[in-house]
Amino acid sequence: MNHMYIPQTFNQQLDDLLNRIAEKLQLDDSRRASAERSYNAVSEWIEGDLGFFNNVPFDIYAQGSYRIGTNVKPLQGDEFDLDIVIHMTIPYEGLDPVEVLNQLERRLREHGQYKTMLKRKNRCIRIVYANLFHIDILPGFQESALDANRIVVPDRSLKDWTPSNPKGYAEWFKSKYIKEELMLLEKSLRAEDLPNQIPYHLMQPLQRAVQLIKRYRDIYFKDSPGSATSSIILTTIAGMFYNGAQSEYEAIKGIVNRAYEDLRMLNGKVLHVVNPANTKEVFSDKWINEPHLYRNFIQFIVDFKKHWDKIEDAKGIHNIIGIFKEMFGENTSTNSLIEQSDYIHKARNNGQLGVSRQSGLLTGILPSSTTVIPNNFYGSNS
């Protein structure tokens, strides 16, 4: 945490606190290490197949929150999920989608350990590491030579192929906060490494906003998790409505207010949410078939806005912490505030807190900074 600016104004302290809360929501190192070991083992096992997958060129890579850096640890010890794709590059026409799922299941059942851990899902095969995490393995085929990232994936209930684009989705999300010329090129490997944990000080406000929105979703729906809005919908809406704010607080405020206004303008019509990288993939399909899920989503956004609006009127961090406890969990919020206070007091008392003459932001002592005299720091609306 030495790379972060030390907050001085109320708004800087608010953002720092949100950043600390989100940091505590991330998977701990041991969970990530377990997931990485399992991911590598599963990848190697599929690559070693002498049957169907032996004859098919493919890449294996992570998709979803792992890929874009927005994963949060589950509430109350539930399993977290890791989504991976087997991206095959032969023509899919003429192949039976259910048979491809069966071939994947067949290969996994040939493994002494996996065979007792498998669960069939509609579009994937799940390996359940009980009480720890599960890996969802999605087989897909490149849709055409025109776009290397667009794929079709099996749908068991439809008995057909459906469109997707997990890599393109990740690039779209990153493009919301990284200029195109700075986008990192994907490594072209048979099995990509799992993306590294993004260092604390390099996490972007949009990534933090998604983590915090997802955590309040988990708390809001904790008594009926089956009614909760999916992470892919919340992440897409956040990307759609993010206004480029460099403040976590302002980023969430912009996303929630714009979503609220959009829902108000729709006046009961269902919000259409698609994969921006392949608009044939409709994330909001469930809302048409299960309207109660859409009503739950609307109520969630209304409730989120109500909580976020209260922050405008709160005086000082100690009043705001009550709102954060409700939204993000009591222990997480309290511990983040204690950690922040300790950090700032130590920096002040050690004479290590300086204000940059160029930016006015608090930072460590630098040649171009002025030392701040130690005093109490409680947060004010300055």
Rank of each mutant, 00 (worst) to 15 (best):
R295T: 08
A35H: 02
S356K: 13
S336D: 12
I46T: 00
K305A: 00
T371A: 14
E192A: 09
I338W: 15
I84R: 07
I198H: 05
I321K: 02
E36I: 12
I233S: 05
K187M: 11
Y177G: 06
N335K: 15
M117H: 05
G268I: 11
Y242F: 12
E105L: 07
G354E: 12
I86D: 05
G51D: 10
D49Y: 00
P97L: 09
Y66G: 06
I298P: 00
H87I: 06
T334S: 13
H111P: 02
A35I: 07
S369I: 14
I232F: 07
P57T: 10
A251I: 03
L118H: 03
E36P: 01
E250R: 12
N122K: 09
D59W: 05
T279A: 12
E110L: 10
I344C: 14
L184C: 08
Q197N: 08
P276E: 05
T334F: 10
D81C: 14
A41F: 05
S284H: 04
Q113R: 13
W45T: 12
S224F: 10
L118K: 02
F133C: 09
Q358S: 15
Q352T: 09
S34T: 11
S247P: 05
V256S: 05
I68C: 10
S164C: 07
K315T: 09
L82S: 05
D285N: 13
K310N: 06
L266T: 12
I125T: 06
L206S: 07
N11W: 06
G351P: 07
L189E: 13
T162N: 01
F173A: 01
Y92K: 05
I320P: 01
L50T: 11
P97T: 04
S30N: 14
I317N: 07
H318C: 11
V270C: 09
D160M: 03
R357V: 15
Q358D: 14
E192W: 03
Y5G: 11
R31D: 15
T162F: 00
I60S: 12
G244R: 03
T236M: 02
K73H: 08
S382R: 11
R32H: 02
T116G: 09
A245W: 00
L75Y: 03
L95H: 04
N296M: 00
I311W: 04
G51V: 00
V72P: 00
V98L: 07
P74V: 10
